[in-house]
Amino acid sequence: MSTLPTAKAEPERSGFIGWGRVGLACVVVFALVLPFMSSGYHLFQYAQVLNYAIALVGLNLLTGYNGQISLGHGAFFAIGGYASAILVAKFGMPYWVTPPIAGMVCLVAGFLFGLPALRLEGLYLALATFALAVAMPQLLNYKHFDALTGGSGGLQLAKPGAPFGLPITSDQWLYFYCLGFAALLFLAARNLVRGRIGRAMVAIRDQPVAAETMGVPISYVKAMCFGISALYAGVGGALSVTIVGYVSPDSFGLFLSLSFLVGIVVGGLTSIPGMLFGAWFIEFVPNYADQLTSSLGENAKALPWAVYGVLLIALMFVMPRGIAGAVTAMAARLQRFTNATKRA
């Protein structure tokens, strides 16, 4: 990590990087050991957490850092997933080349969606992306695309095994496969937000007028941010389809998009590592609640969504200026504290 020039460019953070390194080392060790301590379905779930986390990082770049609200990132997750599935099922491509392609497709789609979205203020952008999320399953089901998309039946994919005769199970391999992409994309996101573009993104969110007078190309940064954000969602979708082995329009409903929102709020707006926790939350909370089903009756499977709802509102209550505000305030306080100790 210390080889990264951006880390050195910000000496005031050095106090945190010490702790950050320890934390990172723990996460890395844990992530590498995990597949040998669990198996089968659990491992699939962990891989899915990584894929969700990738999508959440993308959404957080857009919403948390750049202040553009998207309620429709499930749509880009869907486009990425379908792109990958079609390339494998219809064009015979190997699955492992599809995530970058799916990412590029979504980059373009996101950029194009982001261009008109530039003219939309917060609430209206939320409205437009909400519409995208609601309409997506129907669009995927469009009968003239049936030849490619498989219609409402969707597409079935073979589950890939470990390559090069590696002595690991297919589940373990897929976990590492997703882990590789996740690590790469997390690192890229971290560099992005710490760099010049990241500062421009935040400046546009907090002080659009000042940012413009300081020469930040607002339109370009916002549209690009939308594109990159969609790219992340698309790669997450492509990976997810590979490990699920199946894709259909119903997998990408409104609630997927809204879950992503839950994920970034729970994980922390303007936090990159927090997205792992957010993803863990949206993958496992419904599962835990599912296990309660038997004791509370069949319909209790609805309850995790209520948990989401209460949690969302409660989090906003605790931090009325939004989590982003609280984090900024906290960071400023820490900054003052470290500066004070340095001087002392």
Binding site: T63, G67, I69, L71, G122, L123, A126, L258, L261, V262, V265, L269, A302, L303, P304, W305, A306, Y308, G309, V310, L311, L312, I313, L315, M316, P320, R321, G322, A324, G325
Partner: peptide, 19 residues
């Protein structure tokens, strides 16, 4: 609160009523 907080609260209400 900023618009984002309000949108999140509305989405929270969507979840609660639905479930």
């Amino acid at each position: 609160a900023p618009v984002l907080s309000m949108v999140i609260v509305f989405i929270g209400m969507v979840f609660i009523f639905n479930s």
